[in-house]
Nucleic acid binder design. Sequence first.
DNA 1: GTCTATATTCCGATAGAC
DNA 2: GTCTATCGGAATATAGAC
Lengths: 185, 185
Amino acid sequence: MSTKEKILDLAEHYIQHNGYNGFSYHDISSVLGIKNAAVHYHFPKKEELANEVIKKAQVQFENIVEKAEVYDVTYTDKVRRFLTIYDNNLRKENRVCLIGSFATNLDALPPGLNAPLAALVAAIKSWLTMVLAQGREAGEFHFRGSPGQRAALICSGMAGALQLAKILGNEEYYEIKSQLLNDLV
Amino acid sequence: MSTKEKILDLAEHYIQHNGYNGFSYHDISSVLGIKNAAVHYHFPKKEELANEVIKKAQVQFENIVEKAEVYDVTYTDKVRRFLTIYDNNLRKENRVCLIGSFATNLDALPPGLNAPLAALVAAIKSWLTMVLAQGREAGEFHFRGSPGQRAALICSGMAGALQLAKILGNEEYYEIKSQLLNDLV
DNA sequence: GTCTATATTCCGATAGAC
DNA sequence: GTCTATCGGAATATAGAC
């Protein structure tokens, strides 16, 4: 893995553990055994670094969608596959979700991050809404409210679950996740 | 309102808009037209300031509980009253909830904030669990899963709703809230 | 691609005058 | 209770050597 990729991974780590304003270039460089200036070579400004982290999440989400289309037969499986994104965050030493982290510190963020962030959230909500709508039409899901409302509930519930897990423990996460799934069928 | 109270309110404002690491004593003092040193007089360390904000939230929650006991007849009303805490955050220029803000930046927080934060979350979950259990026993609520699970879902769903609202708009918040309530009855 | 060195700004915090 | 003044440190960022 290249230094650039390692930096990107560490930035992602810190954003999801400390928030955008809770880490510095030095935090990253010291872990890699390099100097803070070397990080600036790869990502001149912190805003660009964060922007790349968002882009990476966008690609990751698109990969999930692609895999779901290819491999998953049922709509339940598609939703479950999507939720593995959150599972992975929990496993990675209790990370909160990327969107929740940015949203929470939004007013102290470089304004340039706003648009890519909104695009990512919109893409996720749009896809999940579609899956829920199709799953309901296929008779697989039976839930109250519109698919869009349900998609919003699932996203916010899972984001909150990761945050609650940081304080009360991981059992909370699994309980919330199972309820969100149970309320679908 | 005393300067000390004004500082506390501003700290609360910044924590819920910028996160703990997204504001400085100077940010607070400049709004009040005083100097950063004057803020240090009232709250010598930033950790203490944040601690007082948490304490204030604890008191606010206890007031809600007390009012619910006195005024609310139905369990639905008690839950609704509790959720006005989140409504107020939405109205205050889209604040995220205090717990969500701290949880998101937890690894970049002074360790001393951990215990009071956990106590606040535990108190909220405990009370909400009780209300849900009693409401179900009274035949007012009909939900899947245990009251404790449902309480965790409501808290995390509402926290996430405030965050999603910051990115996609306030309609998201109301849709999520109404779904959480509808899924109770 | 990583380094040293440095500029600049900001932050948390303290001492002591008023 | 608020001020001026200041300290030590850390953060973002850049210039230029290797």
